[in-house]
Simulated scan of single mutants.
Amino acid sequence: MTTATATNDSRAGTPAQADAGRPSALVMPGRAPVAPGWVFPALDRLTGARTARVAAIDTLAPGTVRLRIERPSGYSFTAGQFALLRVATPSGPDLRPLSLAGSPESELLEFATRVGASAFKQTVFGLERGDEVKVSRPMGGLRYDPGRPAVLIAGGTGITPLRSLLLSNAALSSPAPMQLLFSNRHWQWIPFRDELAEQERARENLHITWVQTSPVGTSRGANIHHGRITPELLRSRLEQLPDAVFYVGGSAAMTAEITGILRGLGVARGRIRSARQGRR
């Protein structure tokens, strides 16, 4: 679960544009929904779930899709939060917690997820513009501090809550330096890669290090680190920004590992804020 982040313009385009780059269907066995159907009316009341329509769905990278839905009236969230997204699968209603990946000021709500075999994933993969989904009230958060330097550390789709942070008005208006360490297996698999690169070019206080864990199909460049995120890499960021707050997005194993390294380097627990991912 993510418990907390293309172009800067997150509005949907025309129907033809919304379908551009749309993933083709996968035929894979689904799994049963998370609960029987009678549970969901009570869950709706508990979580403040509201109906919304799909505005667009497109491919971010091989195996990763972005879903944009119309923002319900009065829906407000802060960068780094997540919501429960519910869809109607062939086996019944199913839901997952997904990070709100877009700007808190955008007219659309954005999510990104890896393609998978579950009934939920297959249904999300097959959504079309105009289809209905349900979205809960926002939950969690990363407590972004715009007055402090920031080191953002993400793995794969763990970038989603951090992308929301980067696109927030609070971050866009902050002069504090920001560094992003973004780990992916292959260069071609990086979600939001072109958008993030453009953000780095446009913002003087943002620097990105692309971390590639696979030796196959790697790219070369001054800001590309080959291998894993190591204590030495984190120590160098701490030396550059000794007062930074560290924001971590990724799997439970990754966030635990990074947190352990940072604590070993003497970073106080209050300066480490994580958004863990789990089953989708």
Rank of each mutant, 00 (worst) to 15 (best):
N205G: 08
G227L: 00
G141A: 09
R68Y: 03
R148L: 13
R96M: 06
S118D: 00
K121N: 05
G141T: 14
I258D: 00
F77N: 04
L100A: 10
I272A: 06
R263W: 04
A83N: 08
S103Y: 04
R50C: 09
F182R: 09
V211A: 02
A154C: 07
R193D: 01
G156K: 01
A49V: 09
G250V: 03
A32P: 08
L180S: 05
F182E: 04
T259N: 12
L165T: 08
G278R: 06
I208S: 03
V267M: 01
G156R: 05
D58K: 15
D131P: 05
P15E: 07
G156V: 04
A197T: 15
A56G: 01
G250W: 04
D131Q: 05
G141S: 12
T51V: 13
Q212S: 02
Y247I: 06
H207V: 15
L46G: 00
A256R: 15
A79T: 10
A117Q: 14
V65R: 09
L98N: 08
P97A: 13
E70Q: 12
G21Q: 07
T255R: 00
M28P: 01
G140P: 04
L166A: 07
K134D: 09
A222C: 03
G130N: 07
I261T: 11
Q212C: 00
T213M: 01
Q199S: 11
T259D: 12
G147T: 14
A20M: 14
P191T: 09
L26S: 15
P138S: 07
S99K: 06
V211Q: 02
A256V: 11
L238P: 02
A18H: 00
A197C: 13
G13A: 08
G264Q: 08
M1Y: 14
L43S: 13
M178T: 15
I69G: 12
H207C: 14
D243M: 14
A222S: 14
T64A: 13
I208T: 10
E232M: 05
N205Y: 09
P149K: 10
S183A: 15
R271C: 06
A25E: 04
M1G: 15
R163D: 05
A16F: 14
G155L: 07
D194M: 05
S219T: 13
S168W: 00
V216I: 15
P90Q: 06
L60F: 09
G264D: 11
S174V: 02
T14W: 07
V216N: 13
T160W: 12
F111A: 06
G48L: 11
S219H: 15
G266V: 04
I208A: 10
F192I: 06
V267G: 00
P161V: 05
I229W: 00
V87C: 00
G92R: 02
R129Y: 03
F77M: 12
S168A: 10
D94M: 04
P149T: 10
S106Q: 12
R271F: 11
R96T: 02
E110D: 14
E257Y: 09
G156N: 03
T7W: 07
G264T: 10
F77G: 08
G264S: 13
R235K: 15
A42E: 10
R22F: 08
L196N: 00
S251Q: 09
I272Y: 04
T230P: 00
G260L: 10
R237T: 06
A150K: 08
P23M: 05
V135M: 11
L165Y: 04
N223A: 14
E110L: 14
M178H: 07
K121D: 01
V87Y: 00
G74H: 12
G30N: 01
A197K: 12
Y75A: 07
R114T: 14
R96D: 02
